[in-house]
Design a protein around this nucleic acid. Structure first.
Length: 333
DNA sequence: CTCAATAGCGCG
DNA sequence: AAAGCGCGCTATTGAG
């Protein structure tokens, strides 16, 4: 058995992160991974959160920060409400501990695929715009194009790969990164990316123009004009420059998404104030807003909230919003 | 004891 | 040589 760690950390130490462990063939690997998952959930949430309950209100209260992130997102701390678990079974149980008062419910409303929709809007790519105008499953739609398959014939694996391509594009990922992500050869990954750009030429144009613009003017901007300056964009250090180029691709999408949800929050609070409604907007998780309100008003308010979020900003494609209602945050999803 | 750096991992 | 964006929290280690 080869137990040598095959990856290095940024500082050159042998890495033991999940990716490095998965390269090993040893029965302890699964045990270590599940140990880490469980201890992470226990120390960061189960032990830490109850200690931070406010004596007066009996509730947890986070702090949101408006001037921390590079892209214009909010950040959240003490405790961070933007990284409450959800992806694993045990994580979802932790989320279900966020409950509404008696007679109230939790309403969670999140934008669907907002960053890809923004990419469609900014790039003007006809193919991508059409997919969103028809409210298609965008990963399935991408798979159908890249793999030249009828929509109805797209397999689970093709959709999984297309989803990785779509996310990768938002982050400025290379063929190397995509290959690692979906476990195919670099050549194959390159073919997928080429196939993508052949079908979505507007997206390719957007990527190229964004990088050129970032180099010539030294910043990129969101749909509402928020700028991110990229001082490393013309650095002779290629590593720094490459990072700046990926940031240049990502920031308009992540930042525009932040613009939109902030506008929605202002519109929603104005609506609540004007109507004097008993409804509290108490969490924001980047593309999601969470409310507590009287159970009997939930269905009615859901329609208004959905409309206010969808119409926060007019883009060339519709903004879809999914709303869920439940007695706790987990159920509201 | 505090502080800072590092590694790892929770979320969008 | 690296290779995927943006955050905040916990545990560990080493220094003072």
């Amino acid at each position: 058995m080869d137990l040598s760690l095959k990856k290095k950390t940024a500082k050159g130490q042998p890495s033991t992160n999940e990716e490095a462990l998965k390269l090993l063939d040893h029965p302890l690997v699964d045990l270590i991974m599940s140990y880490r998952t469980l201890t992470k959930l226990n120390s960061t949430y189960l032990e830490a959160l109850p200690r931070q309950i406010n004596r007066r209100t009996g509730r947890l209260h986070t702090s949101y920060h408006q001037a921390v992130t590079a892209t214009g997102r909010l950040s959240s701390s003490k405790p961070n409400f933007q990284n409450i678990p959800i992806r694993t079974e045990q994580g979802a149980q932790i989320r279900s501990a966020f409950i509404a008062d008696k007679g109230n419910v939790i309403l969670a409303a999140d934008y669907s695929q907002i960053e890809l929709r923004i990419m469609a809007h900014i790039s003007g790519d006809q193919n991508l715009i059409e997919a969103f105008n028809n409210n298609e499953d965008v990963h399935r739609s991408t798979a159908s194009q890249v793999f030249e398959t009828e929509i109805s014939m797209v397999t689970k694996d093709q959709r999984r790969k297309a989803k990785a391509i779509n996310f990768g594009l938002i982050y400025g990922m290379s063929a190397f990164g995509l290959a690692k992500q979906i476990d195919v050869s670099r050549t194959e990954a390159k073919q997928y990316i080429d196939g993508y750009f052949a079908n979505y030429p507007g997206v390719l144009k957007f990527m190229e123009e964004t990088k050129e613009k970032a180099k010539s003017q030294g910043y990129v901007e969101t749909v509402l004009g928020r700028r991110l300056y990229l001082p490393q964009i013309n650095s002779k250090n290629k590593m720094l420059q490459q990072h700046a180029l990926r940031t240049a691709i990502n920031a308009p999408m992540q930042g525009s998404s932040a613009d939109i949800i902030k506008k929605a929050m202002l519109d929603i609070q104005a609506w609540i104030n004007k109507e004097d409604y008993e409804i509290k907007m108490f969490m924001q998780v980047h593309d999601e807003l969470v409310f507590e309100l009287e159970e009997k008003m939930a269905e009615e308010y859901a329609k208004n909230l959905k409309a206010l979020m969808s119409n926060a900003l007019k883009l060339s494609i519709p903004l879809e919003v999914d709303v869920g209602i439940g007695s706790n945050w987990q159920e509201a999803h």
